[in-house]
Amino acid sequence: MSERKIRVLIAKPGLDGHDRGAKVIARALRDAGMEVIYTGLRQTPEQIVQAALQEDVDCIGLSILSGAHMVLVPQVMTLLRERGLDHILVVVGGIIPDEDVPKLKQVGVAEVFPPGTLLEDITRFIREHVRQRA
């Protein structure tokens, strides 16, 4: 039996439409051999967690550039815990000020990737951490 491919949900919560980063990452992870599901724009935390459950993903990548991360990310994390999905690795990318990074990690985010992060670093991070959790 071949090893199951890593399944990643790339999601854009909130009202922000800037999807360049989300789409580039989705494609890079796909090229790296992962199964990638992209939610499309303007998903509520509820919709994102629902999609994660249905798609049985190992990782959720949240892309936020609007400054709403301190409201939206904790909502996603709370819902994941409530549904017993806290094994899912959650990473965040976008415009995130340095001082918010520890706060996001405190609510359970595994890593935050600011603008300029190399795709290779994101891919490696997801691969290593999903494996550790498995």
Partner: peptide, 10 residues
């Protein structure tokens, strides 16, 4: 409710 977290941000 759809504006949660985004008011006055960007």
């Amino acid at each position: 409710p759809a504006a949660a977290g985004e008011v006055g941000k960007c």
